[in-house]
């Protein structure tokens, strides 16, 4: 029977501790055929199972252009993420997906891109960044502005180091005031303020923005002030999901199902939704 609730099994090849409460799994499908066929686009999400505790939804954090493995990052919050956090290298988890829509990279070709990420919101953005870097010539100037509460909360330190080392991207990392430590060489300040200082011109630039709701709330007015149009700002929404298939009925915002019509929306689309998220 074609069981849409049946996950694929994957082995945890590597566990990377990004911050005290955030972890990245590097995963490889057990079935070679699945690994070959599993095709996704930047921005899509999956359902990850810890058998015995259930499934949890998060984005695929690695780039679709790097096919040897997939990566996911999660912050420990609830029952399932706690269970996932207990797993070790070599353990097996389940993956169902990919689901949802994606960042329209094909449409964005030829533009400048501004990536803005806060906290765990960097996970979906990282997928796009890596994707874009693997087709670097299709895009013009790239700017990354990435914020975290404190230096220890900053995740993807390794990736950030790699981005910083490149000359064809401008990478700005900031931590909230009070979150810096003695050896911190990045910016100090909230993301919106840093954007105001460092953002590239809005001309021919699309923004990819992910972060906690409060960051998005204060970032949008700044972007508008700098001349970015709502249609050019792409972000992702998150809601509780169980099926990921548009059936279980909990992720909808108005008549929009985040799992099917999302998770990627432009800010213009979000403004049109009922304010219930």
């Amino acid at each position: 029977m074609n069981n849409i609730y049946m996950p694929h099994l994957a082995e945890i090849k590597e566990v990377i501790d990004e911050s005290p409460d955030t972890r990245t799994f590097r995963l490889k499908f057990k079935d070679a055929d699945t690994a070959e066929k599993f095709d996704f686009k930047a921005g899509q999400f999956a359902e990850y199972s810890a058998f015995g505790d259930g499934e949890s939804t998060f984005c695929i954090a690695s780039s679709p252009t790097r096919k040897d493995f997939i990566e996911c990052s999660f912050k420990v919050y609830g029952k399932v993420t706690q269970a996932l956090h207990r797993l070790n290298k070599g353990d097996t988890i389940g993956i169902r997906g990919p689901y949802g829509n994606w960042f329209p990279l094909d449409e964005l070709k030829g533009k400048n891109l501004l990536f803005i990420a806060g906290g765990i919101g960097i996970a979906p953005v990282r997928c796009v960044i890596d994707n874009v870097l693997d087709m670097r010539n299709d895009f013009k100037d790239l700017t990354i502005i990435c914020g975290a509460r404190s230096v220890s909360d900053l995740i993807y330190k390794q990736e950030i180091k790699e981005w910083k080392a490149r000359t064809d991207i401008k990478t700005i990392i900031t931590v909230d005031p009070g979150g810096e430590n003695a050896s911190w060489d990045g910016e100090v300040g909230f993301v919106p303020a840093v954007i105001e200082k460092t953002a590239p011109p809005s001309e021919n630039t699309a923004v990819i923005l992910c972060g906690p709701p409060v960051m998005i709330k204060f970032t949008m007015p700044v972007l508008t002030k700098l001349g970015f149009k709502d249609e050019d700002v792409y972000t992702t929404l998150e809601n509780r999901m169980k099926c990921g298939l548009g059936k279980c009925g909990r992720c909808n915002i108005g008549n929009v199902y985040v799992c099917k019509d999302g998770p990627v929306f432009t800010y213009a689309q979000i403004k049109r939704l009922p304010q219930e998220f």
């Binding site: 259930g54 169980k242 909990r250």
Partner: peptide, 20 residues
């Protein structure tokens, strides 16, 4: 009405099932 939940139920340490 068709909304549902998906939960895991263990019978024992080694066995269980996923329920809709």
């Amino acid at each position: 009405c068709h909304c549902f939940d998906i939960v895991d139920e263990d019978y024992s340490y080694s066995e269980g099932r996923r329920m809709k």
